[in-house]
Design a binder for these strands. Structure first.
Length: 826
RNA sequence: GCGAAAGUGGUGAAAUGGCAGACACGCUGGAUUUAGGAUCCAGUGGGAGUAAUCCCGUGGGGGUUCAAGUCCCCCCUUUCGCACCA
């Protein structure tokens, strides 16, 4: 009843594996196509999102394989990280054991779906032969000055007991466990991604990335161009530098705003103990620093502050202005100081009104004169300068440059650029990650582990989860080492690397997984990279994808490869949705891929996932929907199964048959080839390609009793059937191979290549024209394809049902759209 | 608040400015019996009509055009991202 998918799928999976079909070899004479799906976390189970993602990638892999490309589609596991450690704690096992077990399970599941992965290049980031190169690269970054150790206020997750990068904080909560993140001052290792901020803004070297992702990264990097202005503190050698995008408002600056973390404020807190108001200031600073970051930086939290008792000098007019300590200035943006211009900035306005600080209008609105006494809000738009001495009368735009130029001459300021992007803190206070290859020696300070001592392996014998502490700090044998420099007693760095380091260059390791001498050979990198098509979820737009671009550029700059970008084309695939929500255990709407494969086969699952919606949109899973895909494959099976003899005998003869035999079916055959090719290559839209194949199958099965056809007709029928495996291969590869064999072929489908269509079979000799009158369809005619334009128009005017609309009316114009319609204007 | 994307039948969705709803699900009626989540046939946006045919219809309102789901302007809704960024 149902086609024997289980037997078929096992048979062809074995065959592909035996033939090493997907094992890629570096071959300069062949055009390469590197397809990569974001590798999964080693959770131990594939979910529908994976099946959807990998079905897209596999379709492309097999399509380009058929087209004769040297395709490469590797797979591996992102296997370091907190969940494994937490799992191990709960289940009283070891993260390594749990991870390796999970990988075995997942590999088994992958095999069931039959994806064309090159398993000879498999990697797993938690294995020393991978993470030793994390350490090696960390050292190269260090040598280049891209690793720094800084003290900073960092996002700390109490639940996970670790620091998080800004990118890993979502709405103030940990991206892993959802617990509120707190601020904690710590010393950390940072990678200087900000050194590459400018280049990361440049997307000219990628071929095709979604605009959305480019915009998200651009906003995240947050470049702004402005001026740095120096405000000296009288009677000291202190200078407060501020960054502003509005130097045109400098004459309106009536106070200086500093955050409590500002070094000057910290200094004052130490030495001003006897000054009046000290207690107040100290209390305010402590309260503000301890306020939750989200609460403090939320736009609608009230602006508060306290006068510091100190003043500074506005360099343009030498005015003495008070310095306020405030809760609305951030230490880690710009210079950590703001020149407050209440008349022209919303925040400063609110603050000045609250504390009754002076305001001065220096930008006049061209349309409506501003008046301090009546202003309800700051005027933040640009305008004409007033109260600005020699700059009066200039417009904002011109004055920005003029004022900055003047400051540069007087050495009181300079043009400057700042970014929102912060350096990437990579230290994690947890066990299950790459050890940072650093030794701390009391005598020599920070010493790098020599290359020949890499990898620094994670000690296996640790007490994971016994305390809240990082187990590495308790692993005495591992922790205590000799300093490589002086030979004295020293200790290892116990922080491990953020797992995003692992995924920042794995696409490059894949091309040379087993290289023991270097992370990958440059020669191979220059052939295989960049990845031609990268596929994964949008959630990585500002994290993984940006880190990987950063890494790639550094790899280039240290001479390991030559390309500028890691991923030439990026597809962000949608999520799998069920009952209006993302599948998740907590919602109880999870569909297990293995259950579906058991019931309907891997091919049906793939076809359904690809058919349900275009790849970049969410897929709506519904249990009825998959039946449609299953019925389609069954109908196809029955067609070939019951006509195999005819197809075997007559398929080779199709090209010799007169063109007019079963013309419509022939048209369907060749048109479908064209449609599938264009949908994949030009639009990467698999749902319409599959719909076209379904439609073609409907056309073929509309022909009843093929056995009673004439010889020529049998040949055309056979051609129509035998083409299907070749255009279905990348969606339902197992069934396609089987059908192809049933049709009498000994080769595998990809060897036959993607079929060519014949232009002459998709030419129609009669054409249907729609006749529109005032934009509405009022009739139709069928004319021979070679009918002259004038004749078509003439016939259109005479057509049935048209007469009653144009009778007695003046026909002003007749528009002919060749091959489509005639529009009559009356 | 700022920015981006989207809004089409009962459902998932199709439509280089050119017949809106391909393909599929679901549903209705019929055939068949092997009673399976089977197969086959017919129908299926709303309304009027025996029918030919006609009217209405792509979130709402304007506009451009012989012709608009598609292009332009305004508005509404939803989703996503950013959010005191000086």
């Amino acid at each position: 009843m149902e086609y024997p998918f289980e037997k078929i799928e096992r048979k062809w999976q074995t065959k592909w594996s035996e033939e090493k079909l997907f094992q890629a070899k570096t071959d300069k004479d062949k055009k390469k196509y590197y397809v990569l799906s974001m590798f999964p976390y080693s959770s131990g189970a594939l979910h529908m999102g994976h099946v959807s993602n990998y079905s897209i990638a596999d379709a492309l892999t097999r399509y380009y394989l058929m087209k004769g490309f040297n395709v490469f589609q590797p797979m591996g596991y992102d296997s370091f990280g907190l969940p494994a450690e937490n799992f191990a704690i709960v289940n009283n096992t070891h993260p390594q054991t749990a991870t390796e077990d999970n990988i075995k399970i997942m590999r088994g599941q992958f095999d069931r779906v039959g994806f064309g992965f090159d398993w000879s290049k498999e990697l797993s980031t938690s294995r020393p032969d991978y993470y030793r190169w994390n350490q090696w690269l960390f050292k190269r970054f260090y040598d280049k000055g891209l690793v720094v150790r800084k003290k900073a206020y960092l996002n700390w997750c109490e639940e996970c007991q670790t620091v998080l990068a800004n990118e890993q904080v979502e709405d103030g909560s940990c991206w892993r466990c959802d617990k509120q993140v707190v601020q904690k001052e710590m010393e950390q290792w940072f990678l200087k991604i900000t050194d590459y901020a400018e280049e990361l803004l440049d997307f000219s070297k990628v071929i095709d990335w979604p605009e959305r992702v480019k915009t998200m990264q651009t906003n995240w990097i947050g470049k702004s161009v402005g001026t740095k202005i120096h405000f000296p503190v009288p009677d000291t050698d202190q200078v407060i530098k501020v960054f502003t995008t509005r130097p045109d408002t400098i004459f309106g600056c009536t106070y200086m705003a500093l955050p409590p973390e500002h070094p000057l404020v910290v200094k004052w807190l130490e030495k001003d103990k006897d000054k009046p108001g000290y207690f107040n200031i100290k209390e305010f600073c402590e309260k503000t620093i301890n306020t939750d970051r989200i609460e403090r930086t939320s736009e609608d939290s009230p602006k508060e502050g306290v006068f510091s008792g100190h003043y500074c000098i506005n360099p343009v007019n030498k005015e003495k202005i008070p310095i306020w300590i405030t809760n609305y200035v951030l230490m880690d943006y710009g210079t950590g100081a703001v020149m407050a211009v209440p008349a022209h900035d919303h925040r400063d306005f609110a603050f000045a009104r609250k504390y009754d600080l002076p305001m001065r209008i220096v930008i006049q609105n061209i349309e409506k004169d501003l008046d301090i006494r009546t202003m309800q809000e700051a005027y933040v738009d640009e305008g004409i300068l007033v109260n600005s001495k020699q700059f009066d009368g200039m417009n904002s735009e011109a004055s920005k440059k003029a004022i900055t130029d003047r400051m540069e001459q007087e050495k009181t300021g300079e043009a400057a650029v700042t970014y929102k992007l912060r350096d990437w803190g990579v230290s994690r206070q947890r066990y299950w990650g790459t050890p940072i290859p650093i030794i701390k020696c009391d005598k020599c300070g920070t010493v790098l582990v020599p290359d020949e001592d890499l990898p620094v392996e994670l000690p296996f014998e640790v007490e994971v989860g016994k305390t809240r502490q990082n187990p590495l700090t308790l692993a005495k044998e591992w922790l205590n080492v000799q300093c490589p420099s002086c030979g004295g007693d020293a200790k290892r760095e116990t922080d491990t690397m953020d797992t995003f380091v692992d995924s920042s260059w794995y696409y490059a390791r894949f091309i040379d997984t087993h290289n023991r001498e270097e992370p990958f050979s440059k020669q191979k990198a220059d052939y295989w990279l960049p990845v031609d098509q990268y596929i994964g979820g949008i959630e990585h737009a500002c994290m993984h994808l940006m880190y990987a671009r950063f890494f790639h550029k550094v790899l280039r700059d240290i001479g390991l490869l030559s390309s500028d970008e890691p991923f030439a084309r990026l597809l962000t695939q949608g999520m799998v949705i069920k009952d209006g929500a993302k599948m998740s255990k907590s919602k109880g709407n999870v569909v297990e891929p293995l259950y579906m494969i058991d019931r309907f086969g891997a091919d049906t699952c793939r076809v359904f996932m690809l058919f349900a919606s275009p790849p970049d949109k969410d897929v709506d899973w519904n249990d009825e929907g998959i039946m449609g895909a299953f019925r389609f494959l069954n109908r196809l099976w029955r067609l070939v199964d019951s006509n195999a003899d005819i197809i075997k005998q007559y398929a080779p003869k199709a090209s010799e048959v007169p063109d007019n035999t079963l013309k419509d079916l022939r048209y369907s055959t060749h048109f479908t080839i064209k449609k599938v090719k264009e949908d994949i290559e030009e639009r990467m839209q698999f749902n319409t390609a599959i719909a076209a194949i379904m439609e073609h199958l409907n056309n073929v099965t509309a022909l009843k009793e093929p056995a009673s056809l004439s010889e020529n007709e049998k040949a055309v029928f056979s051609e129509a059937c035998v083409v299907i495996p070749r255009i279905l291969y990348f969606f339902a590869p197992h069934l396609a191979e089987e059908l192809w064999e049933m049709c009498g072929n000994e080769s595998m489908v990809h060897e036959a290549g993607f079929p060519e269509y014949c232009e002459k079979h998709i030419q129609k000799d009669t054409i249907n024209y729609v006749i529109q009158i005032k934009g509405k369809v009022r009739g139709r005619i069928t004319v021979p394809a070679d009918t002259p334009d004038e004749e078509i128009k003439k016939q259109a005017l005479e057509a049935e049902n048209v007469g009653r609309y144009i009778e007695g009316k003046n026909v002003k114009k007749v528009v002919l759209v060749k091959g489509k319609l005639v529009s009559i204007v009356i």
